[in-house]
Design a protein around this nucleic acid. Structure first.
Lengths: 402, 402
DNA sequence: TTGTACGCGTTATCAA
DNA sequence: TTGATAACGCGTACAA
């Protein structure tokens, strides 16, 4: 027992020594967190030094081994395993049995080198630690696994440079296809055109580019934004602020268009000063909200383009002791699973991220396997859903309360 | 214009036709969502059929090409590129220049086949679409990228069978090392011992096994649980329910131990009936909470072991019109970034998921590159942090209000 | 029906 | 200092 924590469970093996050291140097871009300087302790177990040579090395067998074992040639084995018709049933049986016994697994590396399919798809996206994208990966992985594909993931970290590097690496890994969501810095897509020129299929999802003639899978950003804005308008709001992200992204433009269309339909004039474009920097939302609320006629509702913006907005309003009337005043774009976690004051436009990932992966694998020759380039639009999440439908007469 | 949505933005290229089709069959385990049956529409652009042969095929060059170009042998090129000392500076310069000009990139597949490092690490974890794990991947990917490694991700989906399959696939992909968090079904770890026997290093993180003599990186589950429970006790709670996950997981045991230790320190008797073990099934939390609240002396606080359980618990209590006093009555284990999203009624024990991923990756790469020979097997324990998230410190006299 | 030989891109060994 | 050759694991054209 030591100090206030008796009965510390034996995580490390018995006989350990304990010491405290500082974290080793980490990449600077991950050290922003206020908490990352915390110490951590290491329990060292000195018993049982790891054997330098395996006691019972686990062999990995090749067709050569099978061939030697059976006294046939490697090509016979290869053909037997692939079920070629020109192999005698007897030999086939023997080979199969031997392969089974030796637990033979073909070496995918050799297969890739040979030039045939690597059965791996590359996924390049801005950020894994983002609810939308991690959900999307989930969908992608599920489909890929089902079809016998592996998923190699790359993060562009919203950087154009890094996206290019990722694409190069994916290509050198000989992926059979690429799923990609553009970084917020990317406007030129010639690096992707090169990939297409190498006959490697690409499917874009979420953040897409009109400059690329490929299949795209996106949420119905226009429809979602339209529904959200209309909901706010029908609840009597008139000055609806729109917090969104970089203006050149496809999703931003589509959402803004939906927002404007709803305003237009209801005869409310579009006010440019109510639209704010964020970057992905930290703590940028507070000042935006501050400025908007300082207007002579401040907004009476917010429509935000992401989880992060919605939460930042909520926080900023709360810090200023502003109260958001439940049900009607704040709507954010988000995705299915995170919606459960959000504040009840926040209604959401749900993006089915998992489904987007699934469909993108399906399309890509279709193209890889050329199931339907000359299948047309498509844009698949997945509906969003507006979820109004308030228990009480009461409003505070048309403006954000004090 | 069509219907209520004028000015639909031109996502697809101009000249498209529009039609609605049903989603194709998806894996059943992903179809649980109530919303997944939604239709989606496809915008088909028929113009510009994808060229079947690239107009300007982008070549990928090999050392052979450089050799031919310079009229030297491939081995000379190989050596020059690797900076071998036995190559004349002049030849070296020529080769380098030519490689630069041709934008030569070594083929990692060929390198792997050759038997040297593949510079890829496999990550096997239960679920990507989980805040903790997606954060962890983020940390892993950051470190791996920095060190020039690729990350190949596998989901075990909490299935032992699938974990075994994943391990096999990772091995056949010739990963240089394995980062792994055990599935909730896994108790036997002989499949991992086999990997170690092949001299492929493993680092376990989060859900670890005492049966494996490898480096482990975990959150301070004991300390976090202790702090959370003590906080509740100091606020006057006496009947603290503990909702947790499968009892045989390391993290479950450590958290339970911390909970019990705190109770013991404060002279509160441990009541087994207040502890509930969940699975990862959907909608299981409601009934648990119901049963507990039906007791003659129901709990006056909840300490939950995960985001999911915490949110489920909040929901269940709300549905029954029970009110949780802010600040003191519900504490859940969660991780840094999701904490921002959670209800202010919920205090949290923050798990630094990103840091856990970073350190696990660092350790693994250390071992792969054998930076320090015979480095001891360690268990790295990363501190958690208790964050009390209420604006008002008021309590509702020691029990969950009506 | 089966075996031989070659190639995929690279490195290592040996010979020149 | 450089070149020729074998090897990694597999598939396949061609020969037997």
């Amino acid at each position: 027992m030591s100090g206030t924590l008796p009965n510390r469970p034996q995580v490390a093996a018995p006989g350990r020594a304990e010491r405290v050291i500082r974290p080793e140097s980490l990449p600077s871009d991950l050290n922003r967190s206020r908490r990352s300087r915390a110490r951590f302790c290491i329990l060292v177990s000195k018993h049982l030094p790891r054997p330098s040579l395996p006691c019972q090395p686990v062999e990995t067998y090749t067709i050569k081994d099978i061939a030697r074992e059976l006294g046939v040639s490697t090509s016979t084995v290869s053909r037997a395993l692939r079920g070629s018709y020109e192999i005698s049933p007897e030999t086939k049986r023997l080979v199969m049995e031997c392969a089974e016994r030796l637990n033979y697994r073909p070496n995918p590396i050799a297969l890739s080198l040979k030039g045939s399919a690597s059965r791996a798809i590359g996924v390049i996206l801005p950020q894994i630690a983002n609810y939308f994208f991690s959900q999307a990966i989930n969908g992608i992985e599920a489909i890929a696994y089902n079809q016998g594909y592996h998923v190699i993931i790359f993060q562009s970290q919203e950087s154009y440079e890094r996206e290019i590097a990722n694409v190069e690496q994916a290509m050198s890994r000989k992926v059979d296809g690429l799923l990609l969501s553009l970084s917020s810095e990317t406007s030129d897509v010639s690096h992707l055109q090169e990939v297409l020129d190498r006959n490697v299929p690409i499917v874009l999802f979420d953040r897409v580019s009109a400059d690329l003639n490929v299949t795209k899978v996106v949420a119905d950003n226009f429809g979602g934004a339209f529904a959200a804005t209309e909901h706010l308008l029908q609840a009597g709001r008139r000055r609806i602020a729109h917090l969104t992200i970089q203006p050149w992204l496809s999703i931003t433009q589509e959402r803004l268009a939906g927002y404007r269309a709803a305003l237009e339909k209801h005869g409310v004039e579009f006010d440019e000063t109510l639209v704010r474009y964020g970057t992905f920097g930290p703590d940028e939302v507070g000042p935006m909200v501050d400025e908007l609320m300082g207007f002579d006629s401040p907004p009476d509702a917010f429509f935000t383009a992401s989880d992060r913006l919605a939460v930042g907005c909520l926080k900023a309003l709360r810090q200023r002791h502003l109260h958001i009337p439940a049900d009607v005043s704040l709507i954010g774009f988000t995705n299915l699973n995170v919606a459960e976690y959000l504040d009840p004051a926040l209604s959401t436009v749900v993006q089915p991220a998992t489904q987007i990932g699934q469909i993108a992966a399906e399309r890509l694998i279709d193209q890889i396997e050329r199931k339907h020759r000359a299948k047309p380039i498509e844009t698949v639009v997945i509906p969003t859903e507006l979820i109004v999440r308030a228990s009480s439908g009461e409003m505070v007469n048309g403006e954000i309360g004090r």
